[in-house]
Design a protein around this nucleic acid. Structure first.
Length: 153
DNA sequence: GCCAACGTTGGC
DNA sequence: GCCAACGTTGGC
């Protein structure tokens, strides 16, 4: 089993939105970055666990855990001209972008702030805190997973 | 709102 | 294939 971190702007889709969604499950759509797409398509597996990360908000940080509940499938929003994620260059024969279903697992009592993660020397190699880190889907090692969980209050 | 860092696009 | 221009991300 592998560990991941996924970013979401809470104004767009927060962990509470996931928690209160039907079946506590959401189709994770709108990824339009090739590296993130490759992770979704090639590496995410059912049962993998995800740190749910809130970005572009007052206290950016890890707010909970989700779980992968499907294999990758073509992101339907890429075919919808009405969607902000519409990609006219993508076809159903050769879809460019992939989605995956994720399910709510846990919401932490308190956010684990990015600033706290950054302050820990043993987490200095996490992709999240590396310079210019922008990937919205990124791998987390088992060691990092445990170390971040240790920061829960 | 600023801006550094990074990704993508497209002319050549 | 290079690289300038542009767009996006996301912390601050």
């Amino acid at each position: 089993m592998n560990y991941w971190l996924m970013k979401s702007e809470p104004d767009e889709y927060s962990i509470d939105d996931l928690r209160t969604a039907p079946n506590q499950t959401e189709m994770w759509h709108g990824i339009r970055n090739y590296q993130a797409r490759n992770f979704i398509r090639d590496d995410l597996r059912i049962g993998d666990l995800i740190f749910y990360y809130h970005s572009s908000c007052k206290v950016p940080g890890v707010v909970g855990i989700a779980e992968v509940t499907s294999e990758a499938f073509p992101d339907p929003t890429q075919f919808n001209p009405e969607s902000p994620f519409y990609d006219p260059k993508s076809t159903t024969e050769t879809p460019r972008w992939m989605s995956i279903d994720i399910r709510f697992v846990e919401k932490f009592e308190d956010v684990i702030p990015l600033t706290l993660i950054k302050s820990k020397p043993h987490l200095a190699n996490m992709y999240l805190v590396s310079k210019g880190s922008r990937l919205s889907v990124q791998p987390v090692t088992a060691e990092e997973w445990q170390a971040v969980l240790m920061l829960k209050r």
